[in-house]
Nucleic acid binder design. Structure first.
Lengths: 338, 338
DNA sequence: CTGAAAGCGCTTACAG
DNA sequence: CTGAAAGCGCTTACAG
C-alpha cells in the first residue's frame, strides 16, 4: 500500500482545497453534499480528499455550528440484562439517526452519575438519556431542567421536571402476574425482591390491587425485600423457604430476582411450577431458557430503549413541543415456572 | 431558585473573564488549576464562573489542543453477559482515568463496525477499544494501523497489525474443562457450540490437546457447531440428545451455549451433573445461579475489561512503547453441572 | 503574576 | 457556481 505515504495524518479542509484548487468554502460545501457546487468540481474535491486521507473533524464543525450529534446515555445497572437489552435498542436507534453515543455506567453510584452528567454537558451533548440511579433526588430534575438540555428519563421517574419519559406500567404488570397466580388457585402469594422507592411502590400497588380484586387480604408479612441481584434474591428466597414453608407462590420484582429465587428453589429440592409458582417481570432474553423457563411479564426491553431514543430525537428536533411519555403496556407470558 | 436567572445558557470563558475583571488567558489558567495565578484572583474567577453557570467546553479545548479524552468502544454482542460484564470493567477504568466513552454496539454487523469506526475517527478519539465482529478482515488491522490511533483489540485478534491485545488463553481454558471431564471418567466428550474462526480454532485445539493427553482419540463427529445464542445452542443440543444418546458429557464454547444446552437437558428430562456433564466457559455472573449452577472456566470478564483499558491508556500515554498483550489464565470453577 | 494575539478546523452569511 | 472573511470557545507561547 504505497498510498499510505499520501495519508499524512490530519489533512484539513484547507489542504484538500489546495489540492483541488478551490477554496475551503467549496470543500466544506461539497462535504455537506450541497448541490450548489458543480458536480465536476465536487468530484475533484472528493478525489483530493481521498488522496490525502482526509477525515472530517466533527469537533471543529460542532464548535462552529454550536451543536453536536452526540447523546449522553447513562445506565445504572448493566449487569442486569434488562438494561443491557434496553441499551441495545437505544443505541441502535440513535446510531441509525446519525447520533453518537457517549455512554456511562453509573453502577448504583449517585456520585458517578453526577460526575458523568457534568462531563456530558462539557461535551455539549445534544441530549441525554438517563436510567437514573435509585435514590436520585428530585433536585437533579431541577438542575437538568435549568441546563435546558433535552432529556429522556427511563423506567424510573426522578420527580417533577420538564423531561420526557419512557417506561412501562409497572402496576399493571404486577397486577397481571398476581392475577395469574390467583387464577391458578393460589391465595397466599408473596411479593419478592426490590427495595422501597417510587418504582417499587408502583409494583407493590399492582400486587395489592390484584389481591383486592381477587378478594384476598393484603398482608405485610408476605412482602420480602432484596437487593436487585441474583445473589441477594437467592439468599432472601432461601430464608423465605426455610422460615415460611407455607408459602408456595410468589410474584417477583424483576427477572433477575426470579432467577435468584429459582436457584434457591433448586437448592431446596423444590420444582418451580410444580412445588412453587414463580412469576418474573421484564422478560429478558434469558427467561425463555432458564430452568424451568420463566413465566414473566413482558415489557419488551429492547423496544423500550428504541422508544426512549425516539422521544429524545423528537425533543431535540422540536424543543418546544409538549412533554411526552411512552408507557409500554406489559403482557403476561406463560411459561413453566408458574 | 432565583439564581437560575443568572445561568444564561452557554457562558464562555470570555464572559467569565469580564465578570472577574481579568483576561480570558487568566480564566483558562485558573480552570486548568495552574498555580501561576494568585489564589485571590483564582477565587474571583471561580466565583464568577459559578455565578454565570459557566460550563467548560471540551470540544473547543480539544480543537485547540489537537487531542481529546474520548475513547471509542465497540462491542459486538452486548446481549451476551460476557461482553456486558467486560464493558462494565472497561468503562469503569476509563472513566476513572478521566476519559469519556463513545460506545457502539456493532451487533454482528461488519458494516456497522466500519461505520462507527469512521465516526470515532471523526470524533478524534484518543484511542479505540475493539471487540471485533467475527469475520472482521485482516485488512481492517492495516487500515487502523494507517490511521495511527491507539488501539486495543479484545478477545478476538484481527490479524497482523500494530495493536495491543487483551484476551485469555482459550486453548488452556478448553484444555482445563476437557481434562476435568476426563478425570471424572468421561471418554466420549462433545465439543458444543461456536462457529469456525480464529477463536474457535483455539478452543478446539485445547479440547484436542486434552483428549490427546488423556489418551482419547479426537473424533470430528463429537463437535457440534451452533450460533452464539442460547436459542441456537438449545436447538443444537436438542438434536444432539435425540440423535446421539450415547453422548453424556460436553464442554461448551461459552456460558451462553451452556445455558442453552442446560435448557435442552431439562426439556428432555435429563439432569445436568447427574445424567449429563456440562462445563461452560467465561464464568459470567449468572453461571453461579443457573439451575444447576454451572461448572465453568473463569476468565474474569470484568477484570479483562479493566486490563484492556489499562493497555489502551498506557499506549496513549506512550505511543512509541512496544506492543503489549494481556492474556488472562483461565481457571476451572467446580459447580454442579459437571 | 497577567494580558494581547494567534490559531485549532470548521461553517456561514455575503459578495461577486 | 465559487471565494474571502469572520468567528465558534478554547490554549499557548510570548511579552511585560
Amino acid at each position: 500500500m504505497s498510498r499510505t505515504q499520501d495519508m499524512r495524518k490530519g489533512a484539513t479542509i484547507q489542504e484538500v482545497a489546495q489540492e483541488a484548487n478551490v477554496s475551503k468554502s467549496t470543500v466544506s460545501l461539497v462535504l455537506q453534499g450541497s448541490d450548489l457546487i458543480r458536480s465536476e468540481t465536487a468530484a475533484r474535491v472528493l478525489e483530493a480528499a481521498r488522496k490525502l486521507g482526509y477525515v472530517y473533524n466533527r469537533g471543529a464543525a460542532d464548535l462552529r455550528r454550536k451543536g453536536s450529534r452526540t447523546i449522553g446515555v447513562l445506565i445504572n445497572d448493566l449487569m442486569n440484562p434488562f438494561f443491557a437489552e434496553l441499551l441495545v435498542g437505544l443505541e441502535r436507534r440513535l446510531v441509525d439517526a446519525d447520533y453518537s453515543v457517549l455512554m456511562a455506567h453509573t453502577g448504583e453510584s449517585l456520585e458517578r452519575q453526577d460526575k458523568v452528567l457534568l462531563t456530558m454537558r462539557e461535551h455539549n451533548a445534544a441530549g441525554i438519556a438517563l436510567c437514573p440511579v435509585p435514590g436520585t433526588s428530585a433536585a437533579l430534575a431541577k438542575t437538568l431542567d435549568a441546563w435546558g438540555v433535552p432529556l429522556v428519563v427511563i423506567v424510573r421517574p426522578i420527580g417533577p421536571g420538564n423531561y420526557d419519559f419512557a417506561g412501562y406500567d409497572a402496576a399493571q404488570g404486577l397486577r397481571l402476574s398476581t392475577h395469574h397466580l390467583i387464577a391458578a388457585g393460589h391465595r397466599r402469594i408473596a411479593f419478592l425482591g426490590g427495595r422501597p422507592g417510587p418504582v417499587y411502590e408502583q409494583r407493590l400497588r399492582g400486587y395489592q390491587d390484584a389481591l383486592r380484586e381477587g378478594g384476598i387480604a393484603f398482608s405485610r408479612d408476605l412482602v420480602f425485600e432484596s437487593g436487585p441481584t441474583r445473589r441477594e434474591a437467592f439468599e432472601q428466597m432461601r430464608k423465605v423457604l426455610d422460615a415460611r414453608p407455607e408459602i408456595r407462590a410468589a410474584v417477583c420484582y424483576n427477572d433477575v430476582v426470579a432467577f435468584g429465587a429459582l436457584a434457591a428453589l433448586v437448592e431446596r429440592g423444590l420444582r418451580a411450577g410444580a412445588d412453587f409458582a414463580l412469576v418474573g417481570f421484564d422478560n429478558v432474553l434469558y427467561s425463555a431458557h432458564s430452568n424451568p423457563p420463566l413465566s414473566t411479564i413482558d415489557v419488551r426491553p429492547e423496544a423500550l430503549g428504541r422508544h426512549a431514543a425516539e422521544l429524545l430525537i423528537a425533543r431535540i428536533e422540536n424543543p418546544g413541543a409538549p412533554r411526552q411519555e411512552f408507557i409500554a403496556m406489559p403482557e403476561f407470558v406463560q411459561r413453566q415456572s408458574g
